[in-house]
Design a protein around this nucleic acid. Sequence first.
DNA 1: TAGTTGACCGAAAGTGTATTTTGGTCATAA
DNA 2: TTATGACCAAAATACACTTTCGGTCAACTA
Lengths: 189, 189
Amino acid sequence: MDRRQEIMEAAAKSFSLFGYKATTMDQVAKIANVGKGTIYTFFSNKEELFNAIVLKMIEEMRAVSESAMVEGASFEQNAHTLLIQMLKFRKTHLLYAKLIDEEKELRTPAVIEVLAEIEGEIVSYIKAKIERAIAKGELKQCDSELVAYLLFKAYMALVVDWGKTHNGELSEERIAGLLGGTIFTSLLA
Amino acid sequence: MDRRQEIMEAAAKSFSLFGYKATTMDQVAKIANVGKGTIYTFFSNKEELFNAIVLKMIEEMRAVSESAMVEGASFEQNAHTLLIQMLKFRKTHLLYAKLIDEEKELRTPAVIEVLAEIEGEIVSYIKAKIERAIAKGELKQCDSELVAYLLFKAYMALVVDWGKTHNGELSEERIAGLLGGTIFTSLLA
DNA sequence: TAGTTGACCGAAAGTGTATTTTGGTCATAA
DNA sequence: TTATGACCAAAATACACTTTCGGTCAACTA
């Protein structure tokens, strides 16, 4: 069997279940049925193993949202489903949810770093979509990085933050309505 | 002399200098030149004293941004200066800055609560401005609460958060340009 | 007698120290 | 060569002890 693969799976399981800090290398070794030293022949340390797992999750995320996109649809529709998908993933995916929890509760530096990296990845993914839409002539020229950032933050605010201070989450339609009427329309060519 | 006033001033000074947690009631009493018991004849506990100080700061904030508004100017111009003013205050005001720091470093519950309250206050202030602009016919009908929330979060993201991940802060003009071209224009009647 | 005070109290936070856990190594084994 | 787990230093934890702090109230003033 592929030992590297088994280690990755064991680590993913443990990180998802217990978080980064509470996952010990001994535990990963035990779950993977390998000696602890074996892990270090594939990954130079705990953090690198962690990064490898997270990288895999990012790919998974990209695949999920890519599959949710519709070929002929407008930029607005696709960007909306893309972002909603991402934030749904954020809440649903066991590892992602666990990491968010750990960031809030434990403030583990490695976790904080990784989450920032994931968000950066999402933003640059949106940025690419914007640039493609501009190239296609669907959107007017704009600072794609800045707009991607703003879009991401807007969705985060409405989907994630709103519920913390107001009771009842915002419906997907209400969000689509608000942003469709404000940010999106103004981006059109 | 007004003992209540003296206590308030002493407390404001101490909270600004050392934060909520590191401020002791003994210290406030000493600075105010009163016995500790005297404080409790005006404020039922430390948290209420704190709330009183913060309430005063909120009024101060409101006054500052009110004075920065121009009577004849457009909603966009006034909302922009209002929000920029608020976020400048947030950084400049000794107490506010100290509380933000304490929230990040110590996570003091009383401080977290109070900061959330302040943000809520800012949002409802913007909300009122929006409603007035709608009544005046300057803006089209919209969910004022939601738009106020979105505006606040957008400014926070661009003014406060952007600098944490990208190097170099965004200039006021660039922010005005981005939001003027996106959110603001679409709100017009 | 209305207002002020600081000694006092229990609870909570802090401190120093013994003990355990954990990331990572490497001599040995397969 | 590759895999392993006993081993190590460093970090985390647990625990007992001390100090600090928010809040009270009997005594004290004016």
